[in-house]
Design a binder for these strands. Structure first.
Lengths: 202, 202, 202, 202
DNA sequence: TATGAATGAGCCTTCATTCAT
DNA sequence: CATGAATGAAGGCTCATTCAT
């Protein structure tokens, strides 16, 4: 017994699957019902676990938000890396980034919204900045590269511009997918935005 | 009872003072405590009225939001009109608008935040668009005028650009005043943004 | 309407009946089920009020205890005053007090027990002393009077003895009514105690 | 598995150490936090064992109390035996017993309190009497001896008096160490009590 | 219109206990 | 014997809304 036990102890792993299941379930339920209206009971039901088990992994309902936000940002960065080839000229890159942002926003709009409101509810807006940091850095590199290649104006303040770009793009995509009732003009919006950005950085 | 009631009906005047007091109180309490944490009890206490009286003027806690939003937008438009002289060249106007946006955001940041989250909670994001309509229109005029005077590029899609501009400006100001812990770089942020916009519309 | 309203307003009284009903109900339910096992739901059900109403009068379940304790002590003092005539010789007074203590303990044993454990749970044992103060004072007077009449030894420390007397009497009565399974020897216990006290103070 | 088990069975020894560790831990945690607020989790953490292991030794949280009470009484009796020499005159013995009671109460006050409330919660107050039985008997002997030596009055009811004495002493000590905020008058209290007892038994 | 006491549904969290390993 | 993750029942408290006066 001791032997076989210690055998299992060697391979003993804290059940990350369960944590993942909770997270997935939370994203789905939050997206449907919103943050406040969601009961922990709903999350655990969908996750197929007991009420109490939830609190082994997250100490409260709101403690889910940062984890969800990190997951989200991870996805964003992966998609960006996939879609934006390093050898393209700057304006092609902007095209790709804007399109990616719109597509991501369309798909993740509920999660995005819940991250915003979730973090503002918990009062931890700086938390959000910390989570976004890798994305800012990614954009920094892209801009630095463009400055080097003289594709955009030289004196530009990198970090501020990174934030500004990410801001406009997300704002615009939200305009289209969250606020407007009709989605039809997404193409025009994208075009106008791409032009505006490329022009604005010259 | 009916008599005295009808008596008052003769001189019936909607008690704007009381409605106004509720609104003011709501803004102040919401700003401090956030939307969800604010109890109707808090609002009425500060307004100096009874719990039940609240429901004579607003049918629910969330019904306050649109009214608050309208009030906010009204203030914004007034400030813009004050600060942006019609005879200036376009880039001076942008300077003024950007500065105004930052200043307004600094002052109204809590109210802005609560309007966003409030309207998203009530699911009525289109409501928000309706309220912003006058602001969009105001910006439309400004852009049309600039196109006419050949201060910006001709083919520009007016409404999309209006939304985009308002979006970047508010986004950026929120970056500075809500997300960043240090406010010191507001000037640099403003400069970079002004340049970006003027350039982006050329 | 206004008239009739102001008429009622004149006679407007905060519903002390309801507070009393809650207290009565709490005593009865606590006595049956004990402090911890009692649900607020039980109390309000027996009181015939809504769950929320409870919290208009007491801010938590445990906030009931001091009020109950005060009520109890009030009863004790009234009974003592009733039963102990001022003109009796000291040993007759002790007889009366001992008997009263035993009778009261028999009747109120559950309430007594809940007050002890309730106040110790809330950590406010000094609170209990404050509530008992009038009883101590009552006993002080009795002893001072006896000293004056040379019925007990002169150098006695009044307050300490008051506490000691009340202590033994309550302890003994609890022995009989709470700890022992058979109540038959109550008489013998009383006799022994009376003798012990009278002798002890000589 | 079975093999290794039977292997251990050969040298099978009930792990008194672990049971003891649980008991020690329980006493310490109960004393700090009280009975209800103490979680089994707290006990096992301090005992350095797993949650489930607890239930191998005690079938519930409350099952700890009698064991703790027994331990306590054992200590009390040992101290009494140590301090009270058989050859002393009765009043010297009372002096020693009163002092011992006060000292024990000062040291064990939390444990005492938890035994009282613990046994009353479990409804098993008679249990407490059973545990106290050896103490009562010890006192019986002392009184019988004193009667024989004509140090106290002859007709005294032994058992009742034993209970009464133990009661007053513990009550008084608790008064001083649990209820009063200032401990300074312990000496006076002790003196008064000694006199009262010696006198009361004459 | 105004009041504010009363309502009661609703939900988060705790924690004693179990059981598969 | 030992483990500790998992369970899920249970309950205190909140607060938006109502309604009798």
């Amino acid at each position: 017994m001791t032997d076989s036990h210690s055998f299992f102890l060697e391979g003993y792993i804290i059940d990350n699957t369960k944590r993942e299941r909770i997270l997935q379930s939370a994203i789905s339920v939050f997206s449907e019902q919103g943050l406040e209206k969601t009961k922990v009971a709903d999350i655990v039901k969908q996750a197929g676990i007991a009420q109490g088990t939830f609190y082994l992994y997250f100490h409260s309902k709101y403690a889910l938000i940062p984890s969800i936000a990190e997951k989200l940002l991870d996805d964003i960065l992966n998609i960006m890396d996939e879609r934006v080839a390093a050898e393209q000229p700057f304006d092609k890159k902007i095209d790709a980034i804007v399109d990616a942002t719109f597509d991501i926003t369309a798909e993740y709009k509920d999660v995005l919204a819940l991250c915003y409101s979730g973090l503002s509810l918990s009062g931890a807006l700086q938390e959000w900045e910390k989570i976004y940091e890798p994305y800012y850095r990614w954009m920094d590199h892209l801009l630095e590269d463009a400055v080097e290649k003289q594709e955009i104006r030289p004196g530009i303040r990198i970090r501020i511009t990174s934030k500004m770009l990410i801001g406009v793009m997300e704002e615009s995509a939200e305009q289209v997918y969250l606020f407007d009732e009709q989605y039809n003009d997404s193409t025009e919006y994208r075009e106008e935005l791409k032009l505006f950005i490329v022009q604005g950085l010259k």
